[in-house]
Computed example of a mutant assay.
Amino acid sequence: MTTTDDLLPATRARTGTLVGYGRVSTRDQNLDRQHTALTDAGCIRVFADKLSGKNTERPELAACLDYLRAGDTLVVLSLDRLARSLHDLITIVAELRRREIGFRSLHESLDTTTPAGRLMFHFFAALAEFIRELIVEGTHEGLAAARARGQRLGRPPAMTPEMVETARHLLTNPTATVSSIAKILGVSRATLYKYVPELKTASSASCGD
């Protein structure tokens, strides 16, 4: 779990280079604006991903993170170009800090190499933890309420009571077989045997199944 300690100032001075990262969500969008802004900010190299909305892989981001060295600073045009969620952002920045790499977002004027930037990320980390706690608390309350109403939790049963009753009714037909009953109900033979044990006896006595 990421803590605020992960975002404390690293001991190494920022003597390295500025490296940029850009991303657009569709192939129709142009990266020129981001590339120009990052270059103007002093980045000596810019990595960029062009991804569809459904593509979660970011190969250029992975290459960028691998390229960075202690003392360098990663620069993006805006926070949403780097991360898809607050949790994603905190995770990436915390990992950069552990590697003694700075982070800067131009639009939000965030810079973890400065006291004000680190303070802002302390706030982000605390907010992310608060959101996680709310989700966990809400989930627990929802489960407790469901139990109080007598609802079954977890994976639903393969056969409902109505299906079991139907299987038993079909069993009274001397021409019915376990295979035919399973096919009618849309379950496997093993499931039928589990929920209607008496079918085992009927199957043993039947020559047609």
Rank of each mutant, 00 (worst) to 15 (best):
M1A: 08
T2C: 08
T2D: 05
T4D: 01
D5E: 11
L8A: 13
T11S: 13
T11F: 02
T11V: 14
R12Y: 03
R14A: 14
G20N: 01
S25Y: 05
S25W: 04
D32V: 08
R33D: 09
Q34F: 03
H35P: 02
H35S: 14
A37M: 13
A37H: 04
A37P: 13
L38A: 01
L38F: 09
A41S: 14
A41M: 09
C43W: 03
I44F: 03
R45H: 11
R45I: 07
V46A: 03
A48Q: 06
A48N: 00
D49V: 07
D49L: 03
D49K: 02
L51K: 09
S52T: 11
G53H: 08
G53K: 08
K54C: 02
N55W: 05
N55T: 14
E57K: 11
E57L: 10
L61R: 07
L65F: 14
D66L: 11
R69H: 12
G71N: 04
D72P: 07
D72K: 05
T73E: 12
S78A: 15
R81Q: 04
L82M: 05
L86Y: 09
L86G: 07
H87A: 07
D88P: 08
T91V: 08
T91D: 14
E95W: 03
E95A: 15
E100D: 15
I101S: 02
F103H: 02
R104K: 15
L106N: 06
E108L: 05
S109A: 15
L110N: 07
D111T: 01
D111A: 09
T113K: 01
T114N: 06
G117E: 07
R118H: 02
F123V: 15
A125H: 04
A126H: 09
A126T: 07
L127G: 00
L127Y: 12
F130T: 09
F130V: 04
E133T: 09
E133Q: 14
E133Y: 02
L134M: 14
E137N: 05
E141R: 15
E141L: 14
L143E: 05
L143D: 10
L143H: 05
L143N: 06
L143Y: 06
L143F: 11
A145T: 07
A145H: 03
A145V: 06
A145K: 13
A146G: 12
A148W: 01
A148D: 11
Q151N: 12
R152V: 08
L153M: 06
L153S: 10
G154K: 09
G154F: 00
G154N: 08
R155M: 03
P157M: 00
A158I: 12
A158N: 13
A158W: 00
M159G: 13
T160R: 05
P161A: 01
P161W: 00
E162G: 15
E162V: 11
M163L: 10
E165K: 13
T166F: 01
A167D: 06
A167G: 13
R168V: 08
R168L: 12
L170G: 05
L171F: 02
P174G: 04
P174S: 08
T175W: 05
A176E: 14
V178R: 07
S180H: 09
A182W: 03
A182N: 04
A182Q: 08
K183S: 14
V187W: 00
R189N: 12
V196K: 02
E198F: 09
L199W: 14
L199G: 07
L199F: 10
A202R: 14
A202S: 05
S203V: 11
A205K: 13
A205S: 09
S206I: 05
S206C: 09
C207Y: 14
